[in-house]
Design a protein around this nucleic acid. Structure first.
Lengths: 376, 376
DNA sequence: TTGAAAGCGCTAACAC
DNA sequence: GTGTTAGCGCTTTCAA
């Protein structure tokens, strides 16, 4: 049998309450008593039962992170930062994988694991505003990404329209005129894709370049295989792109692959830019230009928002501030070889240090701005 | 206040026990009663308190996965499979990130979260056999990888020596004579690296090729940056390799990057093979030959072993079978462009389907063999 | 500064 | 089939 607090109390000759005080760092315990208790704890190798503590305290010290796929590098990197941020608050992270399936996402917000978790960070893909409105579970929740923009929940996101506009503008500045886009999505789930498409079109308009539907490729997902297939389609269609803005780095890596197979040079024949700044793009051949969202910040904000919700007792949003929070995280454009930036020496730096050249950074986007910096 | 089982019982006009029976799917409940209870549950939006249930049952339905880094693709892919396998057993996965730091790994096996988890799957990097021997926590545990080969715990691993031998032999079969190795490690943590080096040397010996120390590059980690730096070193050293066996795919991707920068052709000038079969290698330029461990199987076995330990009540191993289990998972060699395999058409298949050509598979390695297939 | 008693919400025994 | 009783291990009143 496992040793309990009572066992310790018995051995130390004190009451359970005193042991509890010692364990929880309560200050007003006589030094002598404290030592006796601590010795007993060591002797018996006592460790508190967290289930019991949770039951009593009504909190568990665990938060859940729900993402579509753990092995998509963007989510993996995000998860890493979230685990670190949660750690700082004394939280452990429990991971849910939704596969982007609406029903699973509904279950997650419905409280499948409520009372086992203090909070939830969800990166939704298929969830609708209605699903969210139906939610009755009171567990604090933070949504990641643009999916349900003005829904009744705290959000952490980046300005996808502005970022996409910048990426596209970067290609136009190279003098390219037939700029393609890969990653458009018509499904209800494609909110992020639609924002990026809007930014793409805005940049074209600003650059005085006409919008050509044939240069826009839709993809079911944002994976490498989708990017490779879409690039092949674009090339076969006779649309003759001389640059491509891919809505994710994975799409871009797939596109690079197809271009290499077709014997096209990057960036000479076709310039390529992605979105996400995953580690792969720093070592691909050629290295990949991209939009780099501040993932550390996104994770940090999500955890902070959760924390605030717990303090104010609000569910899904911080009422004290008059409604759900929308926090905008920074991003920046990173130009690498795929858009003609010079070859940096191979970095022997630890991962996380970018050896690339930052050509431009977001126009003073406040990370806590309550309104999107993009004009409506 | 949250609704409790008592509230439901009151509304349905039954005892708490009956509600409990319904919730837990106990069979011998009158249909009429069951319906009444279920209605009450819906009306009150009742959801059981897991902390209370856990306290009572002594189990939590949660297992922990501890890996060095969540954003290393191999671990991310493994995590994905583990979440899926755990799901099938009704378990939720809680993720710990150790950063490969020994102290954190010790904490993990020491039971930081015991009584919050039913079991632990650990992929150790720095843990020693002594650390393991000191362990007093009784939580079921399964170790992944080769770190503490004959330690007192269940293991799931692959035959690293044989796999490395095959990878190296594959390079020799191409007619290469100056086959380099990247990823050697002298530190205590480098057990996996040492097994792979052994396989490399064995293949050289079998192929009648002399061992040349100058062709072996050590790296602190198995990351892209390490591979890139090591490849640069090898090229600068005048060792003139015409092939490289990298101990991980990330190392190999880094090496490919350096080779591209130096204007060397792969595989013409230098053939490259990696280890892990991460998704990146299926789309890199060129695509990467590799050793592919059966990750789904590894995850599945780990969960099964945990399950068995829970049933037998053993801690860290299945006593019923006379000691800790060592389960060997399959692997196979996948030849792609980096060792001269023909270019497959770009797959438009969903991720997870390899479009590559399997040139050879492991020599009938049983996945449940209790002894390593490699000769001692 | 410490102790005694109560109870968090649930389920395992055992009664009926 | 269903109810009663007890208690999982902890923290939280409230007294002493």
């Amino acid at each position: 049998m496992r040793t309990t607090l009572r066992d310790v109390a018995r051995l130390a000759g004190v009451s359970p309450k005193t042991v509890s005080n010692v364990v929880n760092g309560y200050l007003h315990v006589r030094a002598e008593t404290r030592v006796r208790v601590e010795e007993a704890i060591v002797t018996l190798n006592y460790r508190p039962n967290l289930s019991a503590r949770n039951l009593r305290r009504g909190r568990t010290g665990v938060i859940a992170l729900a993402v579509p796929e753990l092995d998509v590098p963007y989510f993996a990197e995000l998860a890493r930062h979230l685990v670190a941020a949660a750690d700082a608050h004394g939280w452990t992270v429990l991971v849910d994988q939704t596969d982007g399936v609406r029903e699973r996402e509904r279950q997650v917000i419905g409280g499948i694991r409520d009372q086992l978790i203090d909070g939830l960070v969800l990166s939704p893909l298929a969830l609708t505003a209605a699903d969210l409105a139906e939610r009755t579970d009171a567990t604090p929740m933070v949504l990641l990404g643009e999916r349900i923009h003005h829904g009744p929940a705290d959000h952490v996101l980046i300005d996808n329209v502005a970022a996409a506009r910048e990426a596209t503008a970067h290609l136009l500045e190279l003098g390219r005129t037939r700029v393609a886009a890969i990653g458009a999505q018509r499904s209800a789930a494609g909110v992020t894709a639609r924002m990026r498409l809007r930014g793409y079109r805005a940049a074209l308009a600003a650059g005085g370049v006409g919008y050509d539907e044939r240069l826009v490729a839709s993809t079911p997902h944002f994976h490498r295989a989708d990017g490779a297939a879409a690039m092949a389609e674009l090339l076969d269609s006779g649309a003759r792109p001389d640059a491509v803005f891919c809505f994710s780095d994975l799409l871009a890596l797939g596109a690079l692959r197809t271009l290499a197979e077709r014997g096209l040079r990057v960036p000479d024949d076709v310039a390529v830019i992605g979105f996400d700044d995953i580690e792969d793009g720093r070592f691909s051949v050629p290295t990949l230009s991209t939009i780099s969202p501040d993932k550390r910040r996104i994770a940090g904000c999500a955890v902070d928002l959760l924390h605030r919700q717990l303090l104010t007792g609000a569910a899904g949003h911080a009422d004290a501030d008059g409604g759900p929070q929308e926090v905008y995280a920074d991003y920046r454009l990173i130009a690498r070889e795929s858009t003609g930036a010079s070859v940096p020496p191979v970095p022997s730096l630890p991962a996380g240090f970018s050896a690339s050249v930052s050509v431009s950074s977001a126009p003073s986007v406040s990370s806590v701005s309550p309104v999107p910096p993009t004009a409506p």
